[in-house]
């Protein structure tokens, strides 16, 4: 009995002494700020910062290799927290959200052919440049919705991607996966957008889409500073977008949309108003 106690106790003491010595000798220096930054990050591992995940970004920031402003999902709160940890001044950034610049779902826009293959926009795009006649329109097969780490993208039953502005963190995953470049990053405080991505001439657009921009210039005539027309496509100038909403009623194709009044028709969100847009800039 006593022998056993002594043996085990002895082994325990020797092991404890060895481990204690080893932990002193081989200790790895960890920057305490790295752990603190990692705690402050949202933990979505979305990759918006360019690193594979949040821990890589925390390490990069602690080492001074990466800027503390790259975490778009975290927004200004996270940036402030990181700045506090690092003891530096936080810089204000404009939060960005993604928006699908298209309203031409399967009911409003025509198709060249009936697509029966893999439900993936990139696969469809390889087949004669995609089923949609419009060269820039949303294909509606949901590659962006699958890529979104935050579940912010809804596919309507009519085949159109609609991005929930409250859930979107601006990680740009959808932007990089879309084969038609129809998703653009815009300042979150801008709620008025021209929801069209076709650079074709008006006559061509009218043939394939009921809600496409025909480049008629009426919006620019109504609010000259808020719109720019390039290659038959109007775009809101996000530097001077304050009065852009005034042109909505004037647009003959009804392709200018104000998200502060709700999401485009056809979406499940159609009747909900984005939280972040309660006070439209005026």
């Amino acid at each position: 009995m006593l022998t056993a106690v002594l043996c085990l106790g002895g082994i325990g003491l020797v092991a404890a002494a060895t481990l204690g010595a080893a932990s002193k000798k081989f200790a790895v220096e960890v920057d305490p700020r790295e752990a603190a930054i990692l705690d402050a990050l949202p933990g979505a591992n979305c990759g918006a910062c360019g690193e594979p995940g949040c821990s890589g970004y925390a390490k990069g920031v602690a080492e001074g290799r990466l800027a503390p402003t790259l975490c778009t999902p975290g927004g200004s709160g996270t940036i402030q927290a990181i700045a506090d940890i690092l003891g530096i001044e936080a810089v204000a950034t404009t939060p960005q959200v993604a928006v699908v610049l298209c309203q031409g779902d399967n009911e409003k826009a025509t198709s060249k052919y009936r697509y029966l293959g893999l439900s993936d926009c990139n696969a469809a795009q390889k087949l004669a440049d995609g089923p949609k006649t419009c060269p820039g329109g949303c294909l509606g097969l949901g590659s962006c919705a699958n890529a979104c780490p935050f579940g912010a993208i809804e596919m309507t039953p009519q085949g159109l991607a609609v991005i929930n502005r409250d859930k979107c963190t601006g990680c740009e995953k959808c932007v990089s996966v879309c084969p038609r470049n129809v998703i653009k990053m815009v300042p979150k405080d801008a709620t008025v957008h021209v929801l069209c991505n076709s650079h074709d001439k008006g006559a061509a657009v009218r043939k394939y889409c009921q809600v496409g921009c025909i480049g008629c210039n009426i919006c620019k005539k109504t609010v000259p500073e808020a719109y720019q027309i390039e290659n038959f496509l109007a775009r809101v100038d996000y530097e001077h977008h304050e009065d852009a909403a005034q042109a909505i009623e004037k647009c003959p194709m009804k392709c200018i949309h104000d998200f502060s009044t709700g999401y485009p028709a056809g979406s499940r969100l159609a009747t909900t108003k984005p939280e972040t847009s309660k006070q439209p800039a005026a």
Binding site: G117, L118, D120, N122, A123, K126
Partner: peptide, 12 residues
């Protein structure tokens, strides 16, 4: 299932 279509896609 669109098998060959999927494979062609991933080949790309």
């Amino acid at each position: 299932l669109p098998l060959v279509q999927s494979i062609r896609h991933i080949k790309g």
